[in-house]
């Protein structure tokens, strides 16, 4: 690998930061959705939804902005992946629409059937969305068939191969763990005691998935680890990742939920960093014709556009981070249901 810190690499990193922000923030929303049906009483379900109530749509903006940045910085990647994954993208869209609507509409009517319907919608759409995000990552890592015009020439069913599904399931498990930890922070009493139990279970499930994905990647997807082997210093990332994951049950045990949550965030950031390092400088690997891969160079916008966007990002992102933090600060603490709750 030839590494140079040029404009394209900076944008590869920035797009990565936006998607990492999305994974960390919307990850716990999706995880709470995936766990939704495990709570039984209506009040508990409302507490769980209101735990993400004020923040979920702001979290989703990270996806919108990540998509926008991908469109702007690497139009070829945006065009190839979004059109190539057509049906998967449509399913993701329907999933995200249903989830948004379910959160908003569920508690607006008292009828049992109404709430049941939206509870199931919320849960299923969260699981399907998480799974699809993982399947997409799995395919990008595994490689998809592209032709010399960088057009996808495979089929929808061809995207659902075992490796992609494994990454998909791992993503669901990761989001469930992350969501459970977030829920421990936002709940108290009885509910919190139960959610604590979920954290332990979801960690076990995630670690099993993670180990399997790692082994399969090492054996069958060697190109994803080539950069790590070329730069052994980067092994610090998987090591830190393992430590972060191991730290979660410890913090939960000591009732330091916030630190457990930070550990979970760190581990997600590390996972996505590993994904980015594995891909670099490719953005979508073409398989079997490796020469048709989209890289940060042949897929990028002009240097002029990348420069303009860098200015936009440098102006805008500090503001975004500042008010994201202040909004989380305002809505810190345990959920209390009131008249304005969902």
């Amino acid at each position: 690998m030839n590494f140079t810190l040029d404009l394209n690499t900076v944008w590869f990193g920035l797009v990565g930061v936006l998607f990492t922000g999305y994974a960390i923030l919307d990850g716990f929303d999706l995880g709470i959705g995936a766990l939704h049906l495990f709570t039984k009483s209506d009040t508990d379900r409302r507490v769980m939804i209101n735990a993400i109530g004020p923040v979920w749509d702001g979290n989703e903006v990270w996806l919108v902005t990540g998509g926008g940045a991908l469109f702007a910085a690497f139009p070829e990647v945006y065009a190839t992946s979004f059109s190539g994954f057509y049906m998967a993208m449509m399913l993701l869209l329907f999933g995200l629409i249903f989830r948004a609507v379910a959160i908003d509409f569920r508690s607006k009517q008292p009828m049992r059937w109404w709430r049941q319907f939206w509870d199931v919608s919320f849960s299923v759409s969260s699981i399907v969305s998480s799974l699809l995000i993982g399947v997409a990552l799995g395919n990008i890592a595994w490689g998809i068939p592209l032709n010399e015009e960088f057009e996808f020439v495979g089929s929808f069913w061809g995207l659902l191969h075992p490796y992609a599904l494994l990454v998909g399931v791992t993503t669901v498990a990761l989001f469930m763990m992350h969501g459970a930890i977030y829920a421990v922070m936002k709940t108290d009493g009885d509910l919190q005691a139960r959610v604590r139990g979920w954290v332990n279970n979801t960690i076990i499930i995630f670690v099993i998935c993670y180990v399997m994905t790692t082994l399969v990647t090492l054996i069958y997807v060697p190109h994803m680890t080539a950069n790590l082997k070329a730069f052994p210093v980067l092994f610090i990332i998987p090591i830190l990742n393992a430590l972060a994951i191991a730290n979660i049950p410890r913090e939960i045990h000591h009732e330091r939920e916030f630190r457990a949550f930070l550990s979970s965030c760190a581990s997600m950031a590390a996972l996505l960093a590993l994904f980015g390092i594995g891909m670099y400088p490719n953005m979508i690997l073409s398989r079997p014709m490796v020469d048709y891969s989209l890289t940060i160079y042949n897929a990028a916008s002009s240097a002029k556009t990348l420069n303009i966007m860098l200015i936009i990002a440098l102006l805008g992102m500090p503001l975004v981070i500042a008010y994201t933090i202040s909004i989380y600060w305002i809505f810190r603490g345990k959920v209390k249901l009131d008249a304005s709750s969902y």
Binding site: G53, P54, V55, D57, G58, E60, V61, V64, T65, G68, A69, F71, A72, A73, P75, E76, Y78, A79, S301, S302, T305, I308, M309, I312, A313, L315, G316, M317, L319, V320, Y323, T324, I327, I330, F331, S340, S341
Partner: peptide, 28 residues
């Protein structure tokens, strides 16, 4: 993409975060 993308990215960074973030305070 090269022309259009900057506008979309600016929209996301400058406007959407502002709107959806402070909407939380408005509603809750």
């Amino acid at each position: 993409g090269d022309v259009f993308g900057s506008a979309l990215a600016a929209e996301g960074v400058f406007a959407f975060f502002l709107e959806s973030g402070f909407l939380a305070i408005l509603l809750f």
